[in-house]
């Protein structure tokens, strides 16, 4: 009884159950456990009849899952709150006494929510995901970039990083990368806001080079 009551509270607090139904989306498959019709919703769903956790949707819209507007501008605090409340609701620890199927679904939900949070939190992956949702073809592995002034800049930062021998020079490079990423994030925001998806794609490709540099910098900093 206690578990059921707690779930009911959670459900009410998160308000998944009825919001989707009110929007009148097409009904999905029934509850796997008792066969009852399920409420619509974007987040993890529990059966109203038997309380069973339902499997995640096959390809959920991560913005809807995380209760965010489909936009490059994101409210990071709200995203984090949503992330925490979702994780609280589906955390595998809560399902230790439940049937194996539900334990499995809770793991799937939990990992999907982690993935969604990371994708939406990081500007590069968020931008790439937005492009994907808009049907823009992603940059191909075989695409070759020849903006030589830009590539020269990337080459030089790579060289500096490879040669960096002390904390100071590493910190200097770290600041440089951060500044560049912030500048690019602003430009990407502007590009998405005027719906210039091709420009956004170009800028995100530039961000990828800096993300790469950031990874290398982190790898280099670990031993210290």
């Amino acid at each position: 009884y206690r578990r059921g009551a707690m779930r009911a509270v959670l459900r009410a607090r998160l308000g998944w159950a009825l919001r989707g139904a009110a929007l009148g989306r097409a009904p999905g498959p029934p509850c796997w456990s008792c066969g009852a019709a399920l409420p619509a919703g974007d987040g993890p769903r529990f059966c109203l009849g038997c309380q069973a956790l339902q499997p995640p949707a096959p390809r959920p819209d991560l913005f809807r899952l995380m209760d965010c507007d489909r936009s490059f501008r994101i409210d990071a605090q709200r995203l984090q709150q949503r992330f925490r409340s979702l994780q609280r609701a589906v955390h595998p620890d809560r399902f230790g006494q439940r049937p194996p199927k539900e334990q499995y679904y809770s793991e799937q939900h939990s990992s999907l929510i982690n993935k969604a949070y990371q994708i939406l939190l990081n500007p590069l992956s968020r931008g790439l995901y937005l492009l994907e949702l808009s049907g823009v073809e992603p940059v191909q592995e075989t695409d070759c970039d020849a903006d030589s002034a830009f590539l020269m800049e990337i080459m030089e930062i790579n060289e500096k990083l490879a040669e960096a021998k002390n904390e100071n020079s590493l910190e200097e490079i770290e600041t440089l990368i951060k500044v560049k990423q912030e500048e690019l994030t602003k430009e990407v925001t502007a590009a998405f806001e005027r719906d210039d998806l091709q420009e956004a794609k170009k800028l995100l490709a530039k961000m990828k080079y800096f993300a790469n540099l950031e990874d290398k910098l982190k790898a280099k900093k670990i031993p210290s």
């Binding site: 695409d143 970039d145 020849a146 030589s148 590539l151 020269m152 080459m155 990828k208």
Partner: peptide, 13 residues
């Protein structure tokens, strides 16, 4: 020749 692979962020000179 300076080229880059935008999908993975590699640069080659």
């Amino acid at each position: 020749g300076l080229v880059g692979a935008p999908a993975c962020g590699d640069v080659m000179k």
